[in-house]
Amino acid sequence: MIISKKTAFVSTATFCVAIAASTIAFAASHSDGKAQEDAAEYRQSTFKMVGQHMGVMAAMMKGKVDFSVESFAKNAEAVAMLSQLAPNGFEVEGLSDDTDAKEEIWKDKDAFNEKMSDFQTTAAALAEATKSGEEGKIKAAFGPFAKTCKGCHTDYREK
């Protein structure tokens, strides 16, 4: 089996994110004052990867690049996996100096957690839709997924 450079990168990046998650958990449990900075860095790294994969899918959806079910599926699977890691970056309450996150995340954590759950659900549904190989089903699943991203950015991210 041949592993592409992109697949190897995604696997390596995912491994690094998982290691970062355990580091944040350790830092938070020891309250060394660096926990908020570590949490912000974890969030930013995770969502930067989400954004990179989202960009590829959005370009296909807008017709800027040719639609490829295989490429779309790889990106959707990566986002679904990253959506499961994303909540780890919000376990430490509070903001660092270098963040676009809003305090509202922790003021109403239940509402934020619901939006995070919606993100995970729609990301998983998008990845599942790609298994059909049908462009129409994939495009139909992309709309709700993109809407969850935009909704969270609107409510919980500084512009």
Score class of each variant (00 low, 15 high):
3 I>M: 15
4 S>L: 09
6 K>C: 07
8 A>S: 13
9 F>S: 00
12 T>V: 08
12 T>Y: 09
12 T>E: 10
15 F>H: 01
16 C>K: 02
19 I>V: 09
21 A>Y: 06
26 F>I: 05
26 F>G: 06
27 A>V: 12
28 A>W: 00
30 H>G: 06
30 H>V: 08
32 D>R: 00
33 G>R: 05
33 G>P: 12
35 A>W: 10
37 E>G: 15
38 D>P: 06
39 A>E: 05
39 A>V: 08
39 A>K: 04
40 A>C: 13
40 A>W: 09
43 R>I: 03
43 R>H: 04
44 Q>I: 05
45 S>Q: 09
46 T>D: 08
46 T>L: 09
47 F>R: 13
47 F>P: 04
47 F>C: 06
48 K>F: 01
50 V>W: 12
50 V>S: 02
52 Q>H: 09
54 M>L: 08
55 G>E: 08
56 V>C: 01
57 M>W: 07
59 A>D: 14
62 K>F: 12
62 K>L: 07
64 K>P: 01
64 K>H: 13
67 F>T: 10
74 K>P: 00
75 N>I: 12
75 N>R: 10
75 N>G: 06
76 A>D: 05
78 A>R: 13
78 A>N: 15
81 M>R: 01
81 M>I: 04
84 Q>Y: 07
86 A>K: 07
87 P>T: 15
87 P>I: 15
88 N>R: 11
93 E>H: 02
94 G>K: 00
95 L>A: 09
95 L>C: 07
95 L>F: 12
99 T>N: 04
99 T>L: 08
99 T>Y: 12
100 D>T: 10
100 D>S: 04
101 A>W: 07
106 W>R: 09
107 K>C: 00
108 D>I: 14
113 N>V: 03
114 E>I: 04
115 K>P: 14
119 F>S: 02
121 T>F: 14
122 T>V: 14
122 T>R: 06
123 A>M: 06
123 A>E: 01
124 A>L: 08
124 A>S: 08
126 L>A: 03
126 L>G: 02
129 A>Q: 11
130 T>M: 14
136 G>S: 15
137 K>R: 05
138 I>M: 01
138 I>R: 00
140 A>T: 15
141 A>T: 13
141 A>Q: 14
144 P>W: 14
147 K>F: 14
148 T>R: 06
150 K>N: 04
150 K>I: 11
151 G>N: 05
154 T>Q: 03
